[in-house]
């Protein structure tokens, strides 16, 4: 539904997006991750037809965004960075305008607006100038505008930025509910969001894809994947750490005090399942274990290991 091939964009000496290839199919919710300045927004702007690429192409439902812009844009719902909307308009006027521009009129426009308003819970502020709305409502006005025409492809740049936990949950539920018959791309800095709604995560750095997989696949790259942490009496900690090190399946062990008890984490060799071995050892040794859990992995760790720091990047691009 969304096909991006060799997409490239340069701003002066800086290459913001460097030959990006990406295909998103119906039913997928793709989480687009990357540090600030990695090229996420630039990629989305090109896919939406706002920026012209220097090379490569984006196609939406088979329509080339550059050659057949209007057809591509008709099939796209797009939430730009920062969720811009006309500040003097009320959400009702704004959505009417978008509906009209999108060729919806009369009953179909009214139906589309009321469904988008219902999905984003905008009813209480429909007649208040957008200017006066809270950040959360403004963001949802942007989301409502993007889903108004029930587009087969949806690209949203940070749809949950500025929302409180309840609102985030609601927007994620909405994305999940829509995902069955749409191809959805969202960019986010919230790694838990990727685990919560995305069926696929792509990490980009310096305009290139550095990781592409399901959230579980990315988690499997983490050092913490299948690591086991024990909470046990402080007295047992040293002994337990030493004993765990001797297990053949353990790569390394870290421990530290925590609220009167101690926590010991054993990292798995080859990230294989470790918990059975650890529990076996603990019961044989008779440690006073308060808590034990295996970790799925940490996405932030994977993210950090794959991407570069912005200051480093800025230095390099100047050199």
């Amino acid at each position: 539904m969304l096909e991006i091939a060799g997409l490239t964009k340069r701003f002066g000496p800086i290459t913001a997006v460097a030959g990006l290839d990406l295909t998103v199919r119906k039913g997928e919710v793709l989480g687009f991750l990357g540090p600030n300045g990695a090229g996420k927004s630039t990629t989305m702007k090109m896919a939406a037809g706002f920026l012209a690429p220097d090379a490569g192409s984006a196609r939406i439902c088979g329509h080339d965004v550059e050659a057949d812009t209007l057809a591509a844009q008709r099939n796209l719902g797009y939430l730009p960075e920062g969720a811009p909307a006309y500040p003097d308009m009320t959400p009702r006027q704004f959505l009417r305008f978008v509906a009209e521009v999108r060729g919806l009129s009369g009953d179909s426009a009214t139906a589309a607006i009321s469904s988008a308003v219902g999905n984003t819970e905008l009813d209480p502020v429909l007649d208040q100038p957008i200017d006066t709305l809270s950040k959360g409502f403004k963001r949802r006005v942007g989301v409502a505008q993007a889903i108004l025409h029930n587009p087969p492809v949806l690209i949203m740049d940070e749809p949950t930025d500025g929302l409180d936990p309840n609102q985030k949950h609601a927007v994620r539920e909405l994305i999940r509910a829509m995902s069955r018959d749409k191809a959805i791309v969202i960019s986010t800095h919230l790694l838990e969001e990727v685990e919560a709604v995305c069926t696929r995560a792509v990490i980009i750095d310096r305009g290139r894809i550095v990781a592409d997989g399901t959230p579980a696949e990315l988690l499997a790259r983490s050092r913490h994947h299948n690591a086991v942490t024990l909470q046990l009496a402080a007295a047992d900690a040293e002994r337990a750490a030493a004993a765990l090190t001797t297990l053949p399946s353990v790569a390394s062990v870290e421990h530290g005090p925590k609220n009167g008890t101690a926590s010991v984490t054993a990292f798995s060799k080859d990230r294989a399942v470790l918990i059975d071995d650890v529990i076996g050892l603990a019961s044989r040794e008779g440690w006073d274990v308060k808590e034990v859990y295996a970790e799925p992995g940490r996405l932030d760790e994977v993210f950090r290991s794959l991407t570069t720091h912005d200051a480093t990047r800025a230095r390099e691009s100047r050199a």
Binding site: A48, G49, L70, P84, A85, Y86, V98, R102
Partner: peptide
Amino acid sequence: RTGTMELLLTLPVP
């Protein structure tokens, strides 16, 4: 300045 340009130019209007 307000960023609505991006919205306006990504709507299907020539």
